[in-house]
């Protein structure tokens, strides 16, 4: 493995980890409502921007991060409560259009509350890169990858071991049956928006020191996260993680070996190929149903 390839791989995994976290948010909400939440990218933006502005105001970084994540989770809750819940019973397409409206609204609001400029966050633990086999990786990349690993473990535990997690899965498999065992499916949808906002905000904060953050940063990151979820197979949070890493690495390799001009096209080419040949995604949910 050449040092150059390793270098591209590192940057691919880093950005892929971010796509993965955003993608999981898409999957979690899709699972409880069949809705694609196009405001997912805005949670990323809120996380990054709120942290930048809080720490600029003198709040110590760890506290700023906690407050920013908390703010995003509250906004996630409010989005469900104020925009999705009143439209309960509408078709899925209507709900998706509502999330597009929410996305535009949040971006506009951010330009008023924050500003229209580009911002960078200080790296969490210095800028001295680490050398591995001739390639270098920044400590911030390690933060990003570590964040993804922790999120994966926690989500795995949540869905497989806790009653609330199982209730969320049950709701995604059969909503009426979930109601019949006493699961409040409305509450599950609220929770899924809060989890999605949490993951989005965390990824927005982790990536802010590497890429710049600004009021519209969520547009492209949201779309890439959507690609991650689609490539992996919508409705399977763990598959979104694999999808995110795949898209990220493919992007980095294309940018490195071909041209960075094609970088953004890669994700969408992958999504087209997957939809043509494996419409339910690479790791799409296998239906095990016997009548």
């Amino acid at each position: 493995m050449s040092a150059q390839f390793l270098q591209f791989l590192f940057s691919g995994i880093t950005v892929g980890a971010i796509y993965a976290l955003v993608g999981v948010g898409f999957s979690v909400i899709y699972n409880s409502s069949n809705v694609i939440n196009f405001a997912q990218g805005e949670f990323v933006m809120i996380g990054g921007m709120a942290t930048v502005f809080l720490s600029a105001a003198g709040v110590p970084l760890p506290l700023a991060i906690i407050l920013a994540v908390l703010a995003a989770v509250i906004i996630g809750y409010l989005v469900e409560k104020l925009a999705i819940e009143p439209a309960k019973g509408s078709s899925v397409v209507n709900l998706i259009i509502i999330t597009i409206g929410v996305s535009i609204f949040l971006r506009g609001l951010a330009q008023v509350v924050f500003d229209r400029n580009f911002h960078s966050l200080k790296a969490f633990s210095g800028t001295e890169p680490i050398q591995i086999a001739g390639a270098s990786i920044t400590t911030q990349s390690l933060w990003v990858i570590g964040g993804l690993v922790i999120a994966t473990l926690v989500l795995g535990w949540f869905f497989n071991r806790t009653l609330t997690g199982k209730a969320m899965l049950a709701t995604s498999y059969n909503k009426d049956a979930a109601k019949l065992v006493g699961i409040n499916t409305g509450r599950i949808l609220q929770l899924s928006f809060m989890i999605a906002a949490f993951l989005g905000a965390v990824s927005g904060i982790l990536i802010a020191p590497i890429a710049l953050t600004y009021a519209n940063v969520g547009v492209m990151l949201g779309l890439k996260g959507f690609c991650a979820a689609m490539v992996g197979g919508l409705g399977n949070p763990m598959a979104a993680i694999a999808g995110g890493l795949l898209v990220g690495v493919a992007e980095a390799l294309t940018a490195g070996y071909l041209s960075s001009a094609y970088k953004d096209a890669v994700a969408f080419i992958i999504i087209l190929l997957v939809l043509f040949f494996m419409p339910s995604g690479l790791f799409g949910r296998k239906e095990v149903d016997k009548v």
Partner: peptide, 27 residues
Amino acid sequence: PEGRQLFTPMSVHDNLCLGAFTRNDAN
């Protein structure tokens, strides 16, 4: 329900446990 409506991808054990969802001692 008619047609059973199980949570088909989940284990038999999980299906049964979810039946106790409303009981406080469920977990």
